[in-house]
Design a protein around this nucleic acid. Structure first.
Length: 788
RNA sequence: GCCACGGUGGCGGAAUGGUAUACGCGACGGACUCAAAAUCCGUUUCCUUCACGGGAUUGAGGGUUCGAGUCCCUCCCGUGGUACCA
């Protein structure tokens, strides 16, 4: 290795820090540019080699934008609430805040060792009471606007451990800790009405520059569909007297269904209800004994409660269901009596939780009909609107998107700042009493009745009502970890503000985020939640833009060398520390960008990494011959031309997120410069200015060695000279019937007729021109194709 | 099942509908060296041929086009997401 990366890395990292050159300017005439990467959860395992992929790529963008004269904000922080810290506390008894602080220190040290140009003066930490004070305050704005409400929601319940479980803690339908099959249980939870924003979250995707696949996934998740709600009247055949007086006005019992295909109603030969449908519960409990097979129905409902969603949603598994005997439904158009079923392939929380089954036109309905020998009829469609009218239905739009369950019965999260008073109901904690700080607890497990660990801290729970002053109890649920990450990009604009989550001016100066990068796995949760959160604050007049992110990109995973996911259990995790130690930060950075297309999963390769280190060493050797002893002549002119082509390519590739080909074009230039016998100091310095975003340490070191003052970062991003990159000659491939038969080198400005003549006369080509030339296609600068 | 993305040399990959395999890795040969490492020079998709050359080739099969890795259709395989969304 031709340079000592350890001393070079440390030297420039210290110089950058001392000079503070990466700190965003608060007062600046420059145009702003806000670059954001998803902030990490500081896990105990330390930085994973996958983390720097996103950070390096956006570091390149941030560094280039600064050199282009922009006032760049590129911040970093910690999304530090969450289960892993809590589970660690459960195991060791060490308070989550202690371990979180240690983990953050490790992450910070590791990130600094890679030389990212973060503005470290703006670090945020979601678990800092000064931060979550505002998370709580924002929750109260949702509450005051009527968007936060309490409702029953299903949770995973381990009957042995007597605790609620996160989805992640349910493995194969069983409790991760004890292996007991998990049940579903209803619990009152705080919900936030994100569905009220469904239409806007969908519509406003038009105004943002997200990768198409990201938009598509959000659209599918929101899942708007337009159809109709149609009621099917019931006829109780087992207990005909039950047909009377079912409703307050004596109306008959009916089941509303949602369908996107009302036009197929003639073919609806049965109804299917979700086992959780409220009517099913009523029928089981009904005093009239409307069901003939009550016990069978009850047993099926109970078996559904034990099924995981994966089981229910797997189409490869055979469909199951139970007929509701003693009840028939009337098809409102055909007037025919049709049977009713409950089946777990119908879900309770979409549409009305009941469907009209049209086996002729729906594969799932067909499979069910075939199994239970139900009629499959091919009736003619009726026009959409006519079908709705004839059936007495109404048009209805539904969404897949559901309201956001915002409660967790967990310790390591922001306490929900509400107080319950017998007299006044739910009362918000007054602003001047925020934050509601997490109290110290002895044990971190949820209580065995499913309440949060905070529920047993009497000093915390018992308080006074802010309205009436009487005794009252605090809410003990905490927020999900999506809460703090829903607005962190706002805090970065003004992270030390004690008067507001950020000043109006800072928000106006910096928002929206110009470029945001993160993983595809966050597309439907974090990305959608934070868009919603920002839109709500916008409606409250608290933030200046309706959309938080102008442009969104995503990165692929870095896999292990064998192409599988890196995981601690497999022992194939690459630690960035080891790479920085052995090969240097610049090698790690440049290799991560070079290894493959940014958006795709790529396996790690140590030999590929070594190849990149060789490239950097080659630059160092080139620097040793750069200067006076390089003869100014034709070869130097060619090197200059190659450099300007490289400037163009690197500039364009960074904008297009094609970092891998940007690096390869830098390599091509270095190879060519070496082949041509070296470069002048002037050209080498120019080269360092396009190298610096990728390999900032060595670029600065060589810049200094070359006799320059200051940082490379202080120079402007180079412009290529358009005149210099024009080629005098072009290599034209000559085809006969689309098959390559020869190549000719011609002057770039050759006339077409002359070109065709030359192509025809090329000896390799002419022997294939055996017939009459029917057509000649010329693509300027590239192809001549003779069709014979 | 559904949705999204992907499938190109020995490997990672490149390629606005226009010379497929850039760049890197690996391998082979050579120079330097007592030797090795490092470095430098060269070869390296496959088949065929002493060679010149010829033929084939981007998961499979069709199609559109003067021309397809790229666009369209039907499949196969892999990865990720998933709430059977009616």
């Amino acid at each position: 290795m031709s340079y000592d990366h350890k001393s070079v890395d440390a030297k420039w990292q210290k110089k950058w820090e001392d000079a503070g050159i990466f700190n965003a300017e608060t007062k600046s005439k420059k145009e702003k540019f806000y670059v954001l990467v998803e902030f990490p959860f500081p896990s105990g395992a330390g930085l994973h080699v996958g983390h720097p992929r996103s950070y390096t790529a956006l570091d390149v963008v941030a560094r280039k934008k600064r050199m282009e004269g922009k006032n760049v904000l590129y911040p970093m922080g910690w999304d530090a609430f969450g289960l892993p810290a809590e589970n660690y506390a459960l195991k060791t008894g060490i308070h989550p805040s202690v371990i979180t602080k240690e983990n953050i220190a490790t992450f910070r040290r590791q990130l600094k060792s890679i030389g990212f140009s973060f503005d470290w003066s703006r670090e945020v930490d979601t678990t800092d009471p000064k931060y979550y004070r505002w998370t709580q305050w924002m929750f109260l704005q949702f509450y005051k606007a009527g968007l936060a409400y309490k409702a029953k929601a299903e949770i995973n319940w381990c009957p042995k451990d007597k605790i609620g479980l996160a989805n992640e803690e349910v493995v194969g339908g069983c409790c991760e800790r004890c292996g007991t099959p998990v049940e579903k249980r209803e619990k009152e939870q705080w919900m936030i009405a994100i569905t009220k924003y469904a239409d806007r979250l969908l519509e406003d995707l038009k105004d943002v520059d997200y990768l198409p696949k990201i938009k598509k996934q959000q659209e599918d998740w929101i899942g708007k569909s337009e159809g109709a709600e149609i009621s099917f009247e019931l006829n109780f055949t087992h207990t005909p007297e039950a047909n009377k007086n079912r409703g307050p006005n004596g109306e008959k019992a009916a089941i509303p269904v949602f369908t996107t295909r009302p036009d197929t109603i003639n073919g609806a030969t049965f109804l299917v209800l979700a086992p959780e449908h409220p009517w099913v519960k009523l029928a089981i409990d009904d005093s009239h004994d409307v069901l003939e097979n009550k016990e069978e129905v009850r047993a099926y409902v109970e078996s559904t409660a034990r099924k995981t969603d994966i089981d229910r949603t797997n189409d490869d598994k055979e469909k199951t269901g139970v007929e509701l005997k003693g009840v028939k439904a009337i098809n409102p158009v055909t007037k025919e009596e049709i049977p009713l079923f409950i089946a777990d392939y119908v879900l309770p929380n979409y549409g009305t939780g009941a469907i009209m089954a049209v086996p002729e036109h729906d594969d799932r309905d067909r499979a069910f009909a075939e199994k239970y020998q139900l009629p499959i009829v091919d009736e003619p469609f009726i026009p959409f609107d006519e079908a709705i009218e004839k059936s007495g239905g109404k048009k209805k739009t539904t969404y897949k998107l559901r309201d956001w369950v915002f409660s967790r019965q967990r310790y390591w999260g922001e306490p929900i700042p509400l107080i319950h008073c017998e007299k006044d109901g739910w009362v918000p904690v007054p602003d001047d009493q925020l934050p509601v700080v997490l109290p110290q607890v002895e044990k971190y497990e949820p209580t065995d009745n499913g309440e949060s660990p905070l529920a047993v801290i009497h000093e915390f729970v018992n308080t006074t009502c802010p309205t009436c002053g009487g005794s009252a109890k605090r809410e003990t649920d905490t927020m999900p970890n999506w809460a703090g990450s829903s607005w962190y990009f706002l805090r970065y604009t003004d992270p030390h503000n004690d008067e507001a989550f950020a000043s109006k001016k800072a928000l106006k100066d910096w928002m929206p985020v110009d470029l945001y990068n993160g993983g595809m796995e966050h597309t439907t949760l974090h990305l959608l939640y934070s868009r919603f959160w920002n839109k709500f604050l916008f409606d409250q007049g608290l933030v200046p833009t309706s959309e938080p992110y102008a442009r969104r990109h995503s990165h692929g995973l870095i896999m292990a060398e064998d192409g599988t996911k890196m995981s601690k259990s497999k022992g194939n995790v690459v630690n960035p520390d080891d790479i920085v130690q052995e090969f240097g930060a610049d090698t790690l950075r440049t290799y991560i960008l070079f290894m493959g297309p940014f958006e795709e999963h790529v396996p790690w390769s140590t030999s590929g990494l070594i190849g990149v280190r060789r490239f950097l060493d080659k630059i160092v050797r080139l620097s040793e011959v750069a200067g006076a002893d390089v003869p100014v002549g034709p070869s130097l002119a060619e090197v200059e031309k190659a450099l300007h082509k490289t400037i163009k390519k690197v500039t364009e590739d960074i904008e297009a997120f094609k970092f891998n080909t940007a690096v390869s074009s830098l390599m091509t230039f270095v190879n060519e410069a070496q082949e041509k016998g070296g470069v002048s100091k002037e050209l080498f310095d120019l080269f360092l200015r396009i190298l610096v975003p990728f390999a900032p340490h060595i670029a600065n070191e060589l810049w200094e060695k070359s006799g320059n003052e200051g940082f490379v970062e202080a120079t402007e991003w180079p412009q290529f000279d358009a005149k210099l990159i024009i080629d005098a000659e072009a290599t034209i491939s000559v085809q006969v019937n689309g098959k390559l038969r020869g190549t000719i080198v011609v002057p770039s400005d050759i006339a077409e007729a002359e070109l065709i003549e030359m192509a025809k006369n090329d000896e390799k080509v002419s022997k294939f021109l055996t017939g009459e030339v029917k057509k000649t296609i010329v693509v300027k600068g590239k192809i001549v194709n003779f069709v014979i």
